[in-house]
Design a protein around this nucleic acid. Structure first.
Lengths: 229, 229
DNA sequence: GACGGGGTCATCCGAACGGTTGACCCCACC
DNA sequence: GGTGGGGTCAACCGTTCGGATGACCCCGTC
């Protein structure tokens, strides 16, 4: 699963890529041109890394992953409009059968983001607040298929393992999405072709799971924890 | 006002700083170490710019502004916990009497952020999605006291000038803040030492100004437009 | 085939909300 | 010394919400 199978493209080397080995081929994916330029400047001077491409959208990232077949995609989760980083990660790992490793580099360390990224097949999850040296290490680890997590991310993963949170179902997310638009129960019911009773049932469960007891509170938590796209 | 008065520290040169002149002394302020490292790598190789310091918090930014007296502070608005970029900007421009120019470099182009930053005395407002070359230009402009705005930011400023939005009062923001915690009218009243009637009056006006008609909608808009800290 | 999770719906009821109208106060500004 | 914006409060009324309970269906799994 996490061992890369060699492709038409040269796969990552053996378990321990020596610093003198072929550099890690890297594609940057971030919707902020300034950040990309900064990363390119930072990593361009680093040993053992070669930035072979940049993407400013999820669609472009997916395209570049197949076109360039890099060792690692450095992926921001928040990519403006369109496909987000999680979806891009999902497609890239699927398309490449795991040959292209996605290393998430983002600002957010919320449970929802972390869980979704890992489920989508991300090899690692770093925060932009991480020390830059760690970034280098993580890139090489990712190229070899090894996982690296920023400390706060690791803590959250562990905490979640210990006390598994319920997690909203798809339908509950639908309801929550409509709620966040400010709709009444009746309007939510109309929008989703449900009876008002069903909406209220779902809302009750959402309140339970989010630990709130009002709709305003639910919206606040949803926005805070980025449960909605 | 926007002409820098020479200090004990050598002020910015005449209106047109030639590329051969003394480099612009710059301090980076961003809570993400990776982003700072990227910017430093990017700007370190650029002509006419010298990165003389880095801050990862508002407090540190304020301290460095007086200690180093740079020409320009490159300021992110979102600085994690503690003082945010707007407050740091306010203090820096006040402390230095405008000698230190703050150039905001951030992700967000919401009305609330832009307005607050400009009111706080920012010299320019760039988005991280901006082309990196523009960043260089803007830094030199800021050093000379000239304003640079990213295109989307400029559009918003113009739009606001044409149709001035009401804008929430302080009290209304108080109410909205409590609402975003999921409190009921009664609880909001208790929290702010008001009668429930007053809370309802304020809420009605908030709904009007935000263009919503439910509390959930108000919270959604508030979070979306980053009206709350 | 039993079981459980997810989804759907109904009914009931007290509490909370949203909208409206009208009123008073204070203070800055003209 | 009026004028207006911001803040505060009251009373009323129809609507909506929140919570609880019970029920049915579908589907994948054990």
């Amino acid at each position: 699963m996490n061992r890369a199978e060699p492709n038409a493209h040269p796969g990552p080397g053996p378990e321990r890529p020596a610093s003198s080995a072929r550099p890690v081929r890297l594609v940057l994916c971030d919707d902020h041109a300034v950040v990309r330029a900064g990363l390119r400047a930072l990593l361009g001077s680093a040993e053992g890394v070669e930035v072979v491409g940049e993407a400013d959208s999820g669609a472009e990232a997916v395209a570049l992953a197949t076109k360039l077949a890099p060792d690692v995609m450095l992926m921001d989760l928040q990519l403006g409009a369109g496909m987000d980083g999680v979806e891009a990660t999902r497609r890239i790992t699927a398309d490449s059968a795991g040959a292209v490793h996605v290393l998430v580099l983002t600002t957010y360390d919320t449970d929802a983001d972390i869980t979704r990224a890992i489920e989508a097949g991300a090899t690692g999850y770093l925060l932009k607040a991480e020390r830059p040296e760690e970034l280098l290490t993580a890139i090489h680890s990712a190229a070899a298929g090894r996982t690296t997590l920023s400390a706060p991310v690791a803590h959250r993963v562990m905490a979640r393992m210990r006390s598994p949170r319920p997690g909203l179902t798809d339908r509950e997310r639908d309801i929550l999405g409509q709620l966040a638009r400010g709709l009444t129960n009746r309007d939510i019911a109309k929008a989703l072709f449900l009876s008002e009773a069903t909406v209220k049932t779902h809302l009750g469960r959402i309140y339970d799971k989010l630990g709130v007891d009002t709709r305003a509170g639910a919206v606040a938590v949803a926005k805070e924890q980025r449960l909605l796209p």
